[in-house]
Design a binder for these strands. Sequence first.
RNA 1: GCCAACGUAGCUCAGCAGGUAGAGCAGCUCACUCGUAAUGAGCAGGUCACCGGUUCAAUUCCGGUCGUUGGCUCCA
Length: 645
Amino acid sequence: MSEDIQSTEFIQIGLPDSSILTVKKESTVYEIIGNIGKGLQKAAICAKVNDRIVDLSHRVSADSSLSVFTFDSREGKEVFWHSASHLMAQAVKKLFPEVKVTIGPAIDDGFYYDFDKKSPFVPEDLERIEAEMKKIQSEALEITREELSKDDAIKLFSSLNETYKVELLNELDTDKVSIYRQGDFVDMCRGPHVPDTSYIKFFKLLSIAGAYWRGDEKNKMLQRIYGVAFPDQKALKSHLAILEEAKQRDHRKLGKELELFSIQEDVGPGLVLWHPKGARLKNIIESFWKDEHYKNGYEMISTPHIGRANLWQTSGHLDFYNENMYSPMDIEGQDYYVKPMNCPFHLAIYKSKSFSYRELPLRWAELGTVYRYERSGVLHGLLRVRGFTQDDGHLICRPDQMPEEIDRVIDFCLKMLKIFGFEKFKLYLATKPAEKSVGDQNMWDSATQALEEALKRTGIGYEVDEGGGAFYGPKIDIKITDALGREWQCSTIQFDFNMSERFDLTYIAQDGKKHRPYMIHRALLGSLERFLGILIEHYAGKFPVWLAPVQIIFINVGEEQKDFTEHIIDKFTNMGIRAESDLRDETIGYKIRDAIGKKVPYIGVTGKREAENNTVSLRKRGEKDSSEIKIEDLISLIMSDMRPE
RNA sequence: GCCAACGUAGCUCAGCAGGUAGAGCAGCUCACUCGUAAUGAGCAGGUCACCGGUUCAAUUCCGGUCGUUGGCUCCA
């Protein structure tokens, strides 16, 4: 090559900090990163070259932009975990050659791989697989990408008897596919991947589960293995610690320990029994909820648990929600159904008189207990039950009032959730379901648009959940993030053109004619059962004073202070403070320990000194030291925390 | 509903190559009267989820049912 064209052998790489790096043409991404820094080169997992995420072995042949992803980025994690799933698949194929591989993606907090295996994996298999993975990891097998034609790929995977891969290939409409090899393992995969198996240093296989091929219950059930992996030991350990912490906070465990609720076989799965302390908690939330609703312009209404078939026919539930409803009961020859939703009753109230445009908007709310058939396998503590109390509400308004009503309800909702200690939210716009929906397309379009505009006005940002709407309309769902960073959906704001049609709702407008109002269903906490389950885990059972079923436990030091302690309890109880005493003939250390286990905000010790001074020795939750406080001061301390904010 | 695991005292869990069960905690009684995370002793507590089969004998083995758990599908 002559001197004068040498310049064309170099290309320019633009970095995110807008600096330019000049490198040799056909350099690998890995080499280029080496020019940025050795540390980054070592930590790099994949990179984005001109908006395409590529392997580090990717050769760059023209001027490009480049950004590097380490494990700390979402992209880096995804590639890392995806490679971990391949490592696991390779180990499984080695140990169980007869197994067919299917797919193995990264998920939010780890990865899985689905295998078709005749006899399911047993827990001991996980250890063997982990050991094999360790071996392959230490061999540092290079992970290489190849591109080949679809036909060649089909031939390849047919020869390997990987029928699932062949099935996937047959459905691809591209001509060229990529495969990745590591040692003797080959998988069809878009990639990218880490450069070699040594990257996947620290991992743990967590669980085995059945999963349908392609997520369709009509298909064969495959064997799924879940795992996590990290580039360093500390991260793995802290991840496992979070899993352990989640176990400790499990609302089913705490619900039992703190005597909040039970779900019993003889009563029925998915049916919650609220014990005194749990009912206390639930009642506190309910009365707070009612107060807030009155303050925010709502009226409370109250409706029955069952209704005649006619009602459910009119509402469309018998046609569209039947699989979630329980069989009817016969009352004097008429079919009655237990309610799966409250709305038909609310609309029946609306129908009972005629409304002027001046009376709108109506905001009606009810803590209505509904019953839905849930398949046995989906029940889960308080988070998924068959009977639950919705914090339901319906807004009926004129079309011109609609945007403001949606704004108001979103605002109300976020305020409410913040009061319960949730700070992070995600908003979703759920659009028309592909199958099973009512109402014409225009209605769907305009309703969806109205919700979307309201979402935009929040300024929080939102995602679209395509096809996630209810059969009767599009909706906004709000997800909260709890203390452990887990997301939960509670709130839902659902547009409903359909129900007002079906019930023929009208109001008299200024023109003296009947017009159709708009209707919104909304639940802020969702289901009280689920919300309480989430709250228990969010607070790890250590409820703030205003929610704590027991706010203070008094412990007497000796027999002589029994009367004094009982006198205090009476006083506190009269003030509406939730106080208990432990007057047992036990050592104070024992009773303190017991009270700490109950996670109450305050423990008050009453001994000789306190009885003489009319004080209490106050020990706050989480603190080891205590301090003497006057009874009156203690009362005002607790009283000042009786309401949130 | 599907795949897998599990179901023993109020709770957490041992145990049983088949001979009707044991611990700790909680409970009760007694003694101790105690100053901030377990005082000591004693007592009581179980149709080993339920139904059926094999067996001289089943908590143990086999089958079914119910329930729970981890997922899948579905969802507040």
